[in-house]
Simulated assay, not measured.
Amino acid sequence: MLTKDRDDASPHDIAAEPRPQAQGKAEGGRLAVTLSGNWTTRTISGVDRDMRALEEQAGVRTVVLDLSGIGDMDTAGAWVIKRLAVAQGRKGATIELTGEREAFDVLLAAVEDAALQEVPPAEARAFGIVPFLEAIGRSVVNAWGEFLLAMHILGATLSGSKRRRGRRINLAPLTTQIDRMGIGAIPVVVLMSTIVGAIVAQQGAFQLRYFGAEIFVVDLVGILVLREMGVLLTAIMIAGRSGSAITAEIGSMKMREEVDALTVIGLNPIGVLVFPRLVALAIIMPLLTIIANIAAIAGAMAIAWVYSGITPDAFFDRMTAAIDESSLLSGLFKAPIMGLIIGLIASVEGMKVGGSAESLGRQVTSSVVKSIFVVIVVDGLFAIFYAAIDF
């Protein structure tokens, strides 16, 4: 009889329910298993150990399962019985059922697919030069595949940005993303840049004091902040703050099949979801870089005044003599490119999310790590390029 679990069942009712039993008798390669009691979700745990012992029985050619003594059965009980049949069947034993009823046959057939799913054993990690080279090869292939996917998303973003009603850009989602990823990031960018600028100024002044050249801390801070540190700190903050959010948003929509729903109604999901975020990142990165530069220089100026006695007027005079337009523009040129890189990586990782929360967490983590790594590498490549062209 097919039963339904009752959430409001009292402990007395559960204790009074006939407990399942499995009695096995092996003789001459024939294993006879007599089953009795109620095989339901509430009681099946009591017989699970006995059933697993019967699954491990060796030297069995025929297994006879007598179901005539079973009172009630649900899918949990049917799955345990089917698991025994599948385990012995994989060893080459023939399975015979006796005393079954029509309801039992329905339940056993319903859980057959679940019982047939075998968890593969964990592969032992191999060590040596060949597995090492294989891991490098797989990493290169995966990186190339992700690069192609990023280029596909970039192309689909540009081609899907055009609206059917003649407007090329929908300003509503664009301004929303600028507000969320740009204006919302100003406090943390200002705080981190001010602290880092102050630390660089203090450490630079401390070391230059031995040579009587504390005034050159202005040159150090000005060039380092405007060329490298301002844009790099901003990119790292945006990668951790906005890149993770983009991956989580797109990944959640993919898990709930909202991305497929956009395709069904005739919209390009890449153009709808990715395009506003990429454009917003390309716009806000130079603006946030300027804010980060001002905050870092302000922090350095305060520390230079307190720690080294360099007044703000002397600080500004020395900075105008130490830096030129190239120092300011070199950092701003990199900012929109880094914003696009962060957006592309976050979108790629979001599109790779599967159907589980574990997959979402894994891709969000991967998005942040890859974005930070790539922007640091790109910043180094820009530094080499600027040095080569004497910019």
Results as ranks from 00 to 15, higher is better:
residue 11 P to M: 06
residue 24 G to T: 02
residue 25 K to D: 12
residue 30 R to M: 12
residue 30 R to W: 00
residue 34 T to Q: 13
residue 41 T to F: 13
residue 48 D to A: 14
residue 48 D to N: 14
residue 55 E to F: 06
residue 61 R to A: 13
residue 68 S to E: 04
residue 77 G to A: 08
residue 79 W to V: 13
residue 84 L to E: 00
residue 89 G to N: 08
residue 94 T to D: 09
residue 98 T to G: 08
residue 98 T to Y: 03
residue 114 A to S: 12
residue 119 V to S: 11
residue 131 P to K: 05
residue 138 R to N: 10
residue 139 S to A: 14
residue 144 W to G: 14
residue 153 I to R: 08
residue 153 I to D: 11
residue 163 R to Y: 02
residue 166 G to Q: 09
residue 185 A to E: 00
residue 192 M to A: 06
residue 202 Q to F: 14
residue 204 G to P: 11
residue 207 Q to I: 14
residue 213 A to F: 01
residue 214 E to Q: 10
residue 218 V to H: 00
residue 225 V to N: 01
residue 232 L to G: 01
residue 233 L to A: 00
residue 257 E to T: 00
residue 259 V to R: 05
residue 271 G to C: 05
residue 271 G to S: 01
residue 272 V to E: 13
residue 274 V to N: 06
residue 274 V to C: 03
residue 281 L to M: 08
residue 287 L to M: 15
residue 292 A to Y: 02
residue 292 A to D: 04
residue 301 M to K: 05
residue 305 W to D: 12
residue 307 Y to H: 15
residue 310 I to V: 12
residue 312 P to K: 03
residue 316 F to C: 05
residue 319 M to H: 01
residue 325 E to N: 10
residue 326 S to V: 10
residue 333 F to L: 15
residue 337 I to G: 03
residue 343 G to V: 11
residue 347 S to M: 03
residue 352 K to V: 07
residue 356 S to D: 04
residue 361 G to Q: 04
residue 363 Q to Y: 13
residue 364 V to I: 11
residue 365 T to L: 06
residue 367 S to I: 08
residue 367 S to T: 12
residue 368 V to Y: 07
residue 371 S to K: 09
residue 376 I to M: 07
residue 378 V to C: 05
residue 384 I to R: 06
residue 390 D to A: 15
